[in-house]
Simulated assay, not measured.
Amino acid sequence: MAIKQLLKRTSGWLYLNSSVGRNQLHGAGVILMLHRVLGNDRAANLPHRNELCVGPQAFEHLLVWLRKHFDCVPLMELLQPNALRTERPRVALTFDDGWRDNAVNAYPLLQKHQVPASIFLSTDFIGSRQRFWWESVGETLWGSHGEKARMHLIEHLRITGHPLPVLLDDIDVDRRSVALLHYLQGLKSLDPQELERLTNECPPDSLPQALDWHQVRAMEASGLVRFGPHGASHSILTGLDDVRLHEEISRSRGALQNGCNRPLPVYCYPNGDNDERVREQVANHDYPFALGTTTGLYRGAGDPLNLPRFGVSQRTARNPELLSLRIFRGARP
């Protein structure tokens, strides 16, 4: 495995430092997708956290690497059709959901390295104690809130027809974490109300999981961070009927207009899920751009309501050459 990783990292380094890579990336834009920056790297290393979380050391390592190889620009600068095309490729950072650690852990490092970012808020959570189901359910099952809370949730899941796989009792930490990751991914398709009921079976956190509006306005006032909508309730939009879809987009739009001075004219689909009906509704709410989760370079072509992004995990933040290799693969026609 170590040799395989070394080959991938070497391939990524060669891509960025070769004429092929330079030609392919010339004048192109790369949009990165992050979610959380935790307080320490060890917590972010576990597989069930790795995809959505990075640690502060890994995040700072990524920022230094990005500034070395890219022009780090605001998202809207990258999306403008008449923007100056520089010799170096451009990169824009985006964060999904609106986690509180974006202000506590990510923002100081963005300031330190003067890297702009866009944060897309699930607006119902901002300034409230409403919880993200993935975090509450996942950490309760992991045992972060104690064995009593864990066993209570396991029994509730069994009764409601969502029993845990045997591997979640594996003594190997990594295997158990991978099993939890797959289990949580399988819950994504549940009705939002059922996910809320599962969350309510978890113990409350001592602090809100999400940002509050004071933090949003303080970061916006710095000029380094701008904000856009990521749904209101974080419901997957393709699963909503027309009435609920319209209401979801309208509510998130209204919250941003009330809470920010300059909300972004960019929508960000929860979970990246979108279809023609959803894109039409987003356009009807005066959004010329929207972010998905398909991979690829941005060159001003393609559907502006399904912009590509490259996800950043703890693994790729620690080893950015792996991200470079993903960019190469995503850039191929």
Rank of each mutant, 00 (worst) to 15 (best):
G39T: 10
Q193T: 05
Q209T: 04
A149N: 03
P165D: 09
G39P: 02
P81W: 03
D71E: 14
Q314R: 11
D241A: 11
H113Q: 09
H152Q: 10
Y298K: 06
Q257N: 08
H61S: 15
V54W: 02
L256K: 03
S144W: 00
G143A: 01
A83E: 09
E87T: 10
R49F: 12
P208Y: 05
L153T: 02
S122R: 03
P47G: 11
P229W: 02
E60N: 05
M33W: 01
V73S: 10
V115P: 04
G259Y: 03
L195E: 07
G127F: 02
N258V: 01
R277T: 12
D241C: 11
F70H: 04
P204R: 12
V104R: 12
N82A: 13
P208F: 04
V243P: 00
A92H: 02
M219Q: 08
Q130N: 09
V166A: 14
S118G: 06
G27Y: 02
Q24A: 15
R318M: 13
F70R: 04
D191C: 11
L93P: 04
G27K: 08
W133P: 08
R131G: 07
D97H: 04
G330W: 01
M219D: 09
T94M: 11
K148S: 11
M151T: 06
G186S: 14
L6C: 10
W213R: 11
L38D: 14
D241V: 07
L84V: 10
R315K: 14
W213T: 08
R131P: 01
R90G: 06
R158S: 10
E321V: 02
P204F: 03
P265M: 03
G311L: 07
L32F: 02
P263C: 08
H285W: 07
K4D: 14
A221R: 13
P229H: 03
R226E: 14
S250G: 07
G239P: 00
L167W: 00
D172M: 04
R318I: 00
N200K: 13
T199N: 11
A2Y: 01
Q57I: 07
F328Y: 10
G12M: 05
R309P: 09
